[in-house]
Design a protein around this nucleic acid. Structure first.
Lengths: 126, 126
DNA sequence: TTGATATTCAACCCAGAGGTTGAATGATGC
DNA sequence: GCATCATTCAACCTCTGGGTTGAATATCAA
């Protein structure tokens, strides 16, 4: 199922985050700017593979690169993740308000039923 | 770059979310249980394609299926998204505390500089 | 039964993800 | 200039993702 020709921000961000290697890289970067080689060192894969992961993160703008001589210094950029987090928050809000509405509805029905069917001796609510 | 043989929860969740069709499906489901065909209707792709998307969402446990006769009723399950949101929150916290530490350090240096280099008329610290 | 409806299964296609190896490019240090 | 270090580029491999079409399986309704 080919996703649209133009993947949007969220797509790229979430895709980039959907890999443990890349999440580990980000975690490392949260501790500060790091060189590519240094970043690659803990992983059981070629430097090239890590380099590719980095490119994915850059494409998602989760990582910025600053060249200094022959070294490339990577750093974390939080904005896209903030956006993703906001999407999730909105989604959750959407979901919970729906549940709330359902709940309200049920309570409403209960009250109506209580009002019409009498078993309702004066002071027994709560 | 083949990611580990056993993708974990987060991987599956984020991967599932990294597609606009699937996000749209979830959005629709937040409004309540829906049949597969009904869910597929707004999309410009085959029913089969949507069916596959649904399977991806189920694999990530973002969607639950309830059979009722020949109809399959899908509903949203928020838990995995909560977990993903928590990961992001942790990541952001990590990041901001690092920035905070850096900030503190700089202020500390400023104060030290101010203390040694005299321009420091008695009552000027706020 | 028989026919329609709801859904999946199976096979296939193509593009892209994740990995490898080997060579190219570009600073650095002598 | 020359070897070395940091990094990417290029080509290749395999597996999966997203899509298609056509057939199979259940259920409903007559």
């Amino acid at each position: 199922m080919r996703t649209p020709a133009t993947p949007n921000h969220l797509d790229q961000t979430l895709l980039a985050l959907a890999d443990p290697t890349r999440r580990a890289i980000l975690q490392r970067l949260a501790a500060g700017e790091t060189r590519v080689t240094e970043l690659a060192q803990p992983f059981a894969m070629s430097l090239n593979a890590v380099s590719k992961h980095i490119r994915v993160l850059e494409r998602a703008k989760l990582v910025r690169r600053r060249r200094e001589g022959r070294e490339h210094l990577l750093s974390f950029t939080p904005k896209p993740m903030d956006e993703a987090a906001r999407w999730m928050e909105a989604q959750r809000a959407n979901w919970t308000t729906r549940l709330q509405a359902l709940d309200d509805l049920l309570q409403e029905e209960d009250r109506a039923a209580a009002a019409s069917a009498p078993p309702h001796p004066k002071g027994r609510t709560r």
